[in-house]
Every structure is written in structure tokens, then in C-alpha cells.
Design a protein around this nucleic acid. Structure first.
Lengths: 223, 223
DNA sequence: CGTTTTTTTTGACCGAGGTCAAGGCCCCCA
DNA sequence: TGGGGGCCTTGACCTCGGTCAAAAAAAACG
């Protein structure tokens, strides 16, 4: 199924912060994320930015998910990434003859929406520490690998990006992560490589850890 | 198209705050909102609540949009409402033989997602006044009717509901609306009936008014 | 490797908005 | 039509997290 998409798609390897077009000559566009991570973000006139959603490998994006092309943009947040792009009519034609693909796409899109809903709950009802904990749980679930003494994962975002995702500011994010380090929950080597030494403690800081696990499991199942 | 749905659906008239089941014996469930307004909300153990999305007449809801049934609930926010409910397999069978219905449903679901994204941008990047202004613009667009001296609309939510929607608290919402009244932008008669005397001023307070208009127009077109 | 640039960390201070409490207004219903 | 109870409003106070600035640590690069 994937190879049929790949053969009809344009492969793009954007560098960090490179923007991806959300429309192609009036046609809607579909992206399949293969490697790295993308962010869908909204920019304000005053320079503020809000990351609406982070897209990991296996996720899809279609431009109809964007409220307004003028306001929102899709770009890589990792140093490098790989995505496949198709025009909507091309994809539609493919899907018409392949009901499994149609179902996969449907479930990926509804998962997207569920994650957006989750994100609203996180930034709307949690305090700063809980938000950061939720983010770390999300990343650990998506990108974590068990190692001796904990779960290791590479955070694909800068502190500023994390802040824009969680509706906080970079200073606050840094402060909270320092606190987690001081408590021995988190160990850090370099800027982005983390080892969570106590996943239980981290999860207990996030009121939504159970829901995050469900969402991630659902995504894994669909893929 | 609507009559075919109606004939296969269960009609429900929930009263305010009455919960609607998001699953029916392990089957996913689809709701069509016909009158009133529903809220999809997430509740925290500590009693805090976040309204994730408001559903107006014409909108649809399917349970897959909910991150976790344990956390989220669907309920009426108006004193009365009317919804049609179908089990997912029933709806799927209907849609299979009706490509127009399929397309309508697809566009309603992606609209949902776009509105969730918009909502993240609003609560994540705007200050309290801007959030309230955005909410009023949204309501005016959805439910407003031009009258002598402005646009009249009935706010279907209590102050507490508005606060839970905008990630503020009820006191702050009340304060901001009083300020708008004092400035002559808003006139109020009774608890929920508003007349916006100066739509331009209101829109200028919301950095996202243009995007809100686009989303609303898109919804109107689909319907 | 040393230098330059960028990102992160940390502290001190400040303000938007949350919290609490008291009072007033609406709406419902007998 | 007159209580009564639930909303709404408003003020006083306080806290969490934002802002600004400076130093330290990583990464980038010749």
C-alpha cells in the first residue's frame, strides 16, 4: 500500500523550519510523514506563534485541517525530515481503488483530530509543570526506547518550540525541566537527548498520561 | 439526504447538561446536531473542566474524535436541543450507497478538525480580552441576526461554560464583558441576549476574526 | 582546537488573570 | 406576584508564569 503511494508522490526532505506548501495550484495537498517531525503552527501579527500539532513518522496531513492558509504553516522541526507529497485528486484516485488505504487514511485523520482535542485539554486545563510532564510523556511514548536505567528519547524540538507547543515561554520550560533534573526524574546529555529515570513519577505529574497512552496505542494499531 | 439519515436515526432531545453516550455496545456512534448546541468537554480529577468544541446545528460528531471516552463527554449546553443518533455501522452502510453523503460527512469532519486547530490557536496565543472577543465573533457569525443598530444573538452558554471553553474563569469573562458593555460595543438584555452595536470594533479585538469567518463560511457551504 | 554563534539556564522583578467573598440581578415556579 | 435559588457582577488580594537581562553551556565552523 505504501509503495503505491510512494510511486505517485513527490519525496521532500525539508531542513529545519523549512515551510511546506499547503496548497498546490488550488489543489488540496496530502503529506505522509516518513521521518523526522513536522509542526503545524499558527502565527500572529505580533510575532507570537502557536504550534497546533506535531506530526511524527506515520502521520498524515491534509490541508483541509488547516483553519486558514494565511495564518497557519507546516514546517519541519527536526534538523532533517522526509515527507511524501501528493495532490488531493491524485490521492483520491488511489484511495478509490483501495478500500484498505481509504480506511487507513480515515483513521489517521480522526486520530489527528483526537490529538488536537487532547492538546486543547492540555493547554486549557493544566498548569505549566503538568503541561511539560504531558509533553515528555507524549515524546517518550512516540520516540522512547528502553535503556539501562530508564527510557531514552531525543526531543526533536528546541525549548522555544516546546514552549510554543505548550503555550508557555522558553524560560519557563527550561526552569521546569531543570527542576525535573534536580528531582532525578530526568537525566540529560547534550541538548536534546534525555533519559527518563522514573517514568512512573513523570506519568503521575500528567493528569492525562492514560489518555496519551490510549491515543498513541491507537496510532500504532492503525499504522 | 437528510431524510434518509433521519429515518434510520434515533432522535434525542437532551436537556441542559444531559450527557450523550459516545459509544453504544462497543460500536462507535455518530450524532447529527439539529437544534441547540452541544459541548465536547474533558473533565479533570480535580474538578476542572475544559470544553474542547462547541457543536452547532448542522455539525456532526463521531466518537473517534474523542481522545478517551473516560475523560471526555458530550452534552447539551442549551436548555434544550435535538440530535439524531446512529450507530457507526448503520451510518457506514448508508454512506456506502450515497457518495454525496460521504463527501458531506468528510467535509464536516475535517471542518471539525480545523475548528479544533483554531481553538488551540485562540487559547494558546491570545490574552483574555482577545479570547472573549473571538468567542463573541464566533457566536455572532453562527447565530447572529442583523437588527436595527447591530447584530443580535443569544449566547447559548452560561458564563462558566464560556470560561471553560476559553480556558479562563467565569469572573474574568464577566469582567471583560462588562468592559465591552461600558465601551458601548455590546448591549445586553437579560442574561443571554446580546446585541453587538459595533461589529468592527469587536472584530478588531480578535486577531483571528478573518480566520473565523473563513471557517464559518466553509461550514455554511458544506451544509 | 579555539572562536563565534546560538541555545539554554538562572535570577530578579512584574503583571495578567485566578481566587475568594459579598452582594445584586434574573428566572422559575408556586 | 413574590419568594427562592442559581447566575452574574464586582472588588481586594495573591499567585503563577511572563519578561528582561546576563551568564553559561552546546553546537557550528573554520
Amino acid at each position: 500500500m505504501l509503495s503505491s503511494i510512494h510511486s505517485r508522490a513527490v519525496t521532500i526532505r525539508p531542513r529545519r523550519y523549512q515551510k511546506l506548501a499547503v496548497a498546490c495550484e488550488a489543489d488540496e495537498v496530502v503529506y505522509f510523514v516518513r521521518a523526522g517531525a513536522l509542526a503545524l503552527s499558527a502565527g500572529l501579527p505580533n510575532g507570537r506563534r502557536q504550534i497546533l500539532s506535531i506530526l511524527y513518522p506515520g502521520d498524515v496531513f491534509r490541508s483541509a485541517l488547516t483553519p486558514s492558509p494565511a495564518l497557519t504553516g507546516l514546517s519541519a522541526v527536526t534538523a532533517s525530515a522526509e515527507v511524501w507529497r501528493l495532490r488531493w485528486p491524485t490521492f483520491e484516485a488511489l484511495a478509490a481503488g483501495d478500500s484498505a488505504l481509504q480506511q487507513l487514511f480515515d483513521s489517521l485523520i480522526t486520530d489527528q483530530a483526537a490529538r488536537l482535542a487532547m492538546h486543547i485539554a492540555i493547554i486549557g486545563s493544566l498548569g505549566a509543570d503538568e503541561r511539560v510532564a504531558s509533553f515528555l510523556v507524549e515524546i517518550a511514548l512516540r520516540l522512547g526506547a528502553p535503556v539501562a536505567g530508564g527510557i531514552a528519547f531525543e526531543i526533536p524540538l528546541t525549548r522555544t518550540d516546546i514552549a510554543d507547543y505548550l503555550a508557555l515561554n522558553a524560560d519557563t520550560v527550561s526552569r521546569i525541566m531543570s527542576r525535573l533534573r534536580a528531582k532525578g526524574v530526568l537525566a540529560q546529555s547534550g541538548r536534546s537527548l534525555m533519559i527518563c529515570r522514573d517514568m512512573k513519577a513523570l506519568e503521575s505529574q500528567s493528569p492525562f498520561s492514560a489518555a496519551l497512552q490510549q491515543i498513541c496505542a491507537r496510532a500504532r494499531r492503525a499504522r
